[in-house]
């Protein structure tokens, strides 16, 4: 469902180019939850933005649901839902208006967009606050609206960049439940996170990103077997210390 092949992204800096992502390759199968883990500056966000068709790769290629992210960015955007913890809402619109707006941007005509918004309002139990402006909603309510926005076109692929960063316990729980439920429904999920326990709990497979390179990839068991360590944090620190030699896949992959 998601294929990255030798993906490179460079940014111009004084005196040359800086590689934020350096030859990244991995695959995510349909219905799989793939966790992209790494410290700040590892290249997680840049990778997800490239896979979402928001920025162009400098070289290499990536396909999402069969569409090339560089040449078919709009087709890519049609089949994915993008969520981050920092995602803001239009505070002067109501949840109902917001969902309808995004449904229209995904190509639905106005009646269809209205129906879809109504469906999501019911499904996510938002009726109580669906006509209040988003600016007056609690964090948990806003997260529900955000989930509704992600699902507005019922995309088969979800890309989530640090979706729980800085959230309180209740909102955090809401997002984690949503990811679990989406995974159960067969959606393909690409998740980047700082929180290794979340990755342990949710992900079918995990890729460690360090200085723009994938230094390890596999299931939790495969990674544990390879390093002889139990916790993901310890595994990551060991792999990072080993450096680029550890970049070879730990397991057979998918």
């Amino acid at each position: 469902m998601v294929v990255a092949d030798n993906l490179v992204k460079s940014f111009p800096v004084a005196g040359g180019q800086k590689r934020a992502v350096d030859g990244l390759s991995f695959r995510v199968a349909r219905g799989e939850i793939f966790g992209l883990l790494g410290p700040n500056g590892a290249g997680k966000t840049t990778t997800l933005r490239m896979l979402s068709g928001m920025i162009l790769p400098t070289s290499g290629s990536a396909r999402l649901a069969g569409y090339d992210v560089a040449t078919q960015p709009f087709e890519v955007k049609r089949v994915l839902g993008f969520l981050t913890a920092n995602t803001g809402l239009y505070l002067r619109l109501t949840p109902r208006e917001l969902l309808q707006y995004f449904a229209e941007l995904h190509g639905m005509d106005r009646p269809a967009a209205r129906r879809r918004a109504e469906h999501l309002v019911d499904w996510l139990d938002m009726r109580e606050f669906a006509d209040l402006r988003c600016g007056s909603l609690s964090t948990g309510q806003r997260q529900r609206v955000n989930i509704g926005r992600v699902l507005v076109a019922d995309p088969p692929v979800l890309v989530m960049d640090e979706p729980t960063l800085g959230l309180d316990v209740i909102s955090n729980r809401l997002i984690l439940d949503f990811i679990r439920r989406a995974g159960d429904e067969g959606k393909t999920i690409l998740l980047s996170t700082h929180y290794l326990d979340e990755a342990e709990m949710l992900c079918d497979r995990i890729g460690f990103l360090h200085h723009g390179r994938l230094i390890a990839e596999g299931t939790l068991e495969e990674l544990q077997r390879r390093t002889g360590l139990a916790r993901l944090s310890a595994i990551f620190l060991k792999l990072a210390a080993e450096g680029t030699e550890a970049a070879a896949p730990a397991g057979a992959g998918s």
Partner: peptide, 9 residues
């Protein structure tokens, strides 16, 4: 909200 809108087709 800019990233959100840029993730739309």
């Amino acid at each position: 909200t800019l990233e959100t809108i840029l993730a739309c087709p």
